[in-house]
Amino acid sequence: MEIVMSAVIGLLFAVAVYLMFSRNILRVLIGTLLLSHSVHLILLTMAGLQRGAPPLLFLEAGSYTDPLPQALILTAIVINFGITAFVSVLVYRTYQEHKSVDLYDMRGAKDE
């Protein structure tokens, strides 16, 4: 399972990076989203998958899944949400100011 997951994570990462190489700022935005997914999954996979019950003590299971990566990922998801929201608003404002979503056109070549 972990090996297959790792392969999928690699694919997610590769596509995310590829999208971030794009000229279009919207694709970059989607790329960052995918990148965060891949990072979340990597954290989960590292600890081993499907080992024991969910980390809820009232289940009274013999072994539980590692709760620490989950806490880390939860934090990461929320922070990533904040960042994504900020970047999307930035994209929106950039388009308003420059009337372009092409990163090549937005280079600050004017005052150099």
Partner: peptide, 29 residues
Amino acid sequence: VAGMSGLMVTFVSISAFTYGQMTPFEAIS
């Protein structure tokens, strides 16, 4: 470059998992 980075992430993920299973230290969890 994208493909290489993806491969790297895969390898890192597999190694991290395998290594974590191999070493007998107690997780802080």
